[in-house]
Amino acid sequence: MRFSLKSPAAVLILCLLGGCSGAQSALDPGGPQAQHLARLFWIFTGVCTVVWVAVMLVLLASLVRRTPARPDPLRLDARSERRSLAVVGGAVFATLLTIIALTALSYLSQRQLFARERPAVTIKVTGQQWWWDVRYESDAPDRTVTTANEIYIPVGRPVTVKLAATDLIHSFWVPSLFGKQDLIPGQDNEIQFTASRPGVYRGQCAEFCGWQHAHMGLVVVALPANEFQNWLTAQAAPAAEPEDAERKRGAEIFAAKACIMCHTVRGTSAGSRVGPDLTHFGSRKTIASATLPMSRGNIAAWIVDPQGIKPGVNMPNVSIASNELDPLVSYLAGLR
């Protein structure tokens, strides 16, 4: 179908359609739950639009129709009052039926969407101000994987995400995959969803949690099952020893500066759990809770001035000499 852009209706429709796609859009579903939610949304929208248009038509008709002058406002025609009563009564009844139908539809959808099956992988996400600690649980302790701000899941299999918070209330929301659920300190919440096609889906914290709530994003990557397994196995391994001199120097700088006070790089002496785990930092697609795309320049910018990019974030500005920055960036970018 081709619309001429000179038509206002076409512009409106294009605006509305523009709302459909996007990596973080509820109307661009990437899995069966999200699809179900989108369908439910469109059904509700359709019903509500019909109702609103009907009300507007009645209103317009009542304004347009010719009624005789009313010198005495209290003179009412009994027959027309009865007719109005019947119509209003009918409208109220129709409203009640519609409400009951929508409630039933909502409840049935709710039961279906929140049903649980056996998950292929269980991930524990702990929300902190303003990043996501991600932990892949496993019965074998050496196969637990800790990463941050990025979740990989297998395509086509149900994934359970357990939600916890250590400081205050956050909300885990990846609109293309499922609705949101809060991470509440002291409470164990859980959601389950499936991605039906490979891709990168973005999510964001959806409960106001302080200064950098606006930049507390995360990325969900759905891979075919065997690629996912490869990723998981690679992530479980500790960081490889740096081979070249520049990265060795970078590792020394990392250990000598403030970095080890907050970050973990498994396989080195850095073991603090205050900030995100950086063991395979270089393999991630984004930096700083999905705020910056991964690149050497962005790593450098983030290290040099995190407060300029995300004022108030917990990563402080540390003093790095100009000849220390390049090796450090090389070291981090190479942590794949």
Partner: peptide, 9 residues
Amino acid sequence: DRPLRSEAA
């Protein structure tokens, strides 16, 4: 005061 931007170095 909320001096968010810490003084570097």
